[in-house]
């Protein structure tokens, strides 16, 4: 039995879908699938962000599971190059990873929760 997650690029009118087996996909795997499905390339020159359709809240944690039958909004943005960073992102340590390469190479980012 195949499961589905619907995704829509923010600028597009119509949604597309990812088929998979199971009850959900992690944010990491979903991004990876979307990148491969749409042949977006090696991830060096762009970032891919996922948002909930209603609140436009970002799925920031690669490990979060998105349940099957959900819909998400996808946003493809320019990569942030570490050399020409003007404004630092919220987490200074993440400054160098402003692109989507990890979804292509297959190494999830481990978020270190600070208490």
């Amino acid at each position: 039995m195949s499961s589905v997650i619907f995704y829509r690029f923010r600028s597009q009118k119509d949604p597309s879908r990812i088929l998979f087996d199971g009850t959900g996909l992690t944010v990491f795997d979903l991004k990876r699938e979307i990148i491969f499905e749409n042949k977006l390339g090696d991830g060096l020159d762009f970032q891919l962000k996922l948002f909930t359709p209603d609140t436009e809240e970002e799925y920031e944690d690669d490990a979060q599971v998105i349940p099957r039958s959900s819909s998400v909004i996808v946003r493809r943005s320019p990569a942030i190059k570490a050399t020409n960073l003007n404004s630092r992102p919220k987490l200074g340590a993440l400054a160098a990873v402003g692109n989507a390469t990890r979804y292509v190479t297959g190494k999830p980012r481990v978020l270190q929760k600070k208490s």
């Binding site: 690029f9 600028s11 749409n38 042949k39 977006l40 390339g41 320019p78």
Partner: peptide, 11 residues
Amino acid sequence: QGLASLPFYDE
């Protein structure tokens, strides 16, 4: 090619 060739329309 494909979507990768587009301007960043999502922005």
